[in-house]
């Protein structure tokens, strides 16, 4: 799209800062040092450790049956959790931004709960609820369902932890958009569903994608809550992060780092996609 309307958006910052050169140098230097020390060096370490014994060992560690099973479980979890949070996130953002109702501020606070609660506590609360001695144990037993130390528990815990991502990303975008376009669509005779599909959704698509990507990254990387409910059964209830921990505790460093490098690559891809989306969002003037 040509550069119309972007004139006012990016004002160069020339002339607004009064700090002297050395203050600017120290501030920039500190920031770069932190990023390098805490982000770049560890990331490089993961890959160098993983490849220390050559590509062959690396591929062997990643393709070994337990690792494969961990990868499959992680993918399965993400495949279930992300779509559910996608639906929940849109529904929550929709009702919060488009309607007025009592208890709205409460709902916003509650959506943030998984951010403020330690994942371990979340995992524990699931154990207390669904575990062998848990509140719902009699019901689950009679139905023959097993949740804790099984795949459903892992999915539930991940769902809880990643719950806010899409909604949190969407609420500000939808608030900024207002409801005028929806009102226009309705006045033109569009049904609620068509309005949502043709007007609301395209308007917030970058926001949704961004939320989904963050949600996916967290769903695949979650450790704490999943660790409590999983039971660490090799080849059955181990996700990638749990598998990395087991390998590490068994002093299989190269294998641990090899599997960890998968998550690191996911992180890098997430960051790149996020950057592209933000750039697209700015260029198109969309959320």
């Amino acid at each position: 799209m040509p550069q119309m309307g972007t004139k006012t958006k990016k004002q160069p910052l020339v002339g607004v800062h009064t700090e002297s050169a050395w203050i600017r140098f120290i501030l920039t230097g500190t920031a770069l040092l932190f990023v390098g020390f805490f982000l770049i060096i560890p990331l490089i370490t993961v890959f160098t450790e993983a490849l220390k014994n050559g590509l062959e060992v690396y591929f062997a560690s990643v393709t070994e049956p337990d690792a494969q099973s961990a990868i499959r479980l992680t993918l399965l979890t993400a495949a279930i959790v992300v779509p559910l949070n996608f639906i929940f996130g849109i529904a929550a953002a929709w009702c919060i931004t488009k309607f007025q109702f009592p208890g709205k501020t409460w709902l916003i606070t509650l959506i943030d709960l998984p951010f403020s609660v330690s994942p371990v506590i979340a995992g524990l609360s699931f154990v207390l609820l669904f575990g062998a001695q848990g509140l719902l144990a009699p019901v689950l037993d009679s139905l023959g369902l097993k949740i804790i130390f099984a795949v459903p528990g892992i999915i539930l815990a991940t769902l809880f932890v990643t719950f806010p991502f899409v909604a949190r990303e969407l609420i500000p975008v939808m608030q900024a958009k207002g409801s005028e376009q929806e009102e226009a669509a309705l006045s033109l005779g569009a049904s609620g569903w068509k309005t949502f599909l043709f007007v609301t959704l395209p308007n917030v698509k970058w926001g949704i994608l961004y939320g989904v990507i963050l949600c996916n990254a967290r769903a695949m990387g979650e450790f704490g809550a999943v660790s409590v409910v999983s039971g660490h059964i090799r080849g059955m209830t181990n996700t990638i992060p749990l598998h990395v921990e087991i390998l590490y505790n068994e002093y299989q460093f190269t294998a641990a780092f090899a599997v960890a490098s998968l998550l690191a690559m996911l992180a890098i891809v997430t960051l790149i996609v996020k950057g592209v989306l933000e750039w697209k969002g700015v260029v198109d003037g969309k959320g």
Partner: peptide, 30 residues
């Protein structure tokens, strides 16, 4: 939806992701 009114908003409320043609055709296509 049932009143069949044409409403023009103060800030136009055009659909930004649609071109002029698609904007005007919206009411017919839905």
């Amino acid at each position: 939806r049932e009143r069949n009114v044409g409403f023009v908003f103060q800030h136009y409320a055009l659909f930004h992701h649609m071109n002029v043609f698609e904007n005007i055709a919206f009411g017919l296509k839905v």
